[in-house]
């Protein structure tokens, strides 16, 4: 294929889309649906990961001190906690502060729970630098005299890891299956286009067109269908992102602060959907046209 043919071939690809506009439109519509589902699965996966990261970041532990420990002795434990390497932050959490949280719930009883009536002991709120060193850090903390217990988050960490694995696995299969479906759809469209243009192809072959020359307009056509579907699907996803996020936040409060904002996502969505659409288009087109051109003999119709 010569360079001088490039312009002609690109023009032919565009013409193909227009000449087979009904078929192209049908393919674009089906592709849009598949890309939206694929994109939605990816976005859910991304947001769950972000959620997991947010929960992971919220690695605040409570170090409960012995109930009988005086306020003075309790304050002395702070510097000992800060000496532990894996402790990033350490904040004193007095028993007065703890009971204050329950003021509304307790109502009239609240007053009677002040001073000696306070059922809580003093505590420290700490943050770990590395959550994976949780067990060894807790062990070090428990060795400090006056420490009663440490809140246990190992179970939550395990659950989050399992959820992350599940979301990634489901997302992978959804993307894979829909990818194959879209590939099949686009290759079928190109097959139909080729069938409708087999007469033209046979003339091309009879005058000495190379397979590459015959292939290019169909690949461009498939690429354009993919691009168009990718752009539309990304537009729809961007438009629906915030309303869906708001609706989901109404159900689970945590989502509201932990999801990725649309401002950060619109460009990656647009670029990735368009590129995925084009790649699927090119692959689908190539599958059909290569299969068609591999046929031995019978290239020149009716001979």
């Amino acid at each position: 294929m010569k360079l001088s043919s490039t312009g002609y071939l690109i023009k032919e690809g565009f013409k193909n889309v227009w000449n087979n506009r009904m078929m192209s439109l049908a393919s674009v519509a089906v592709l849009i649906s598949c890309l939206i589902i694929t994109g939605a699965a990816s976005l859910i996966s991304l947001n769950v990961s972000s959620l997991i990261a947010a929960v992971g970041d919220d690695n605040e532990l409570t170090v409960y001190l012995k109930y009988e420990l005086s306020d003075t002795d309790s304050v002395k434990i702070g510097p000992q906690l800060k000496k532990i390497d894996n402790i990033e932050q350490c904040r004193y959490y007095s028993k007065e502060e703890a009971i204050k949280q329950y003021k509304d719930t307790l109502g009239n009883v609240y007053e009677s729970m002040q001073g000696d009536g306070n059922p809580f002991g003093n505590a420290y709120k700490i943050r770990l630098t590395d959550l994976s060193k949780y067990k060894s850090t807790v062990k070090q903390i428990k060795q400090i005299d006056g420490v009663d217990s440490v809140s246990d988050r190992s179970e939550i960490a395990g659950k989050l890891t399992k959820l992350n694995y599940f979301v990634t696995l489901v997302g992978f299969w959804v993307v894979l299956v829909l990818g194959i479906v879209t590939l099949f759809i686009i290759s079928n469209t190109i097959k139909i286009t080729m069938y409708s243009r087999r007469f033209e192809i046979s003339i091309m072959k009879s005058v000495g067109a190379t397979n590459a020359f015959v292939r290019v307009p169909f690949v461009i056509e498939a690429m354009l269908i993919g691009l168009l579907a990718g752009l539309t699907a990304s537009g729809i996803l961007i438009a629906l992102y915030n309303p869906v996020k708001d609706a989901a936040s109404g159900i689970v409060n945590l989502i509201a602060n932990s999801t990725i904002p649309v401002e950060q996502l619109w460009l990656p969505i647009l670029v990735s959907m368009s590129v995925i659409g084009m790649i699927i288009g090119i692959l689908g087109g190539l599958i059909s046209i290569t299969k068609y051109l591999r046929k031995e003999g019978g290239e020149i119709l009716g001979w």
């Binding site: 007469f199 046979s202 003339i203 072959k205 009879s206 000495g208 190379t210 009716g302």
Partner: peptide, 17 residues
């Protein structure tokens, strides 16, 4: 294709687009 470029084929049914 390069073999076919050395030939010109005329068909009974013209084969025009």
């Amino acid at each position: 294709p390069y073999l076919r470029r050395t030939m010109g084929i005329v068909f009974q049914d013209f084969r025009l687009i």
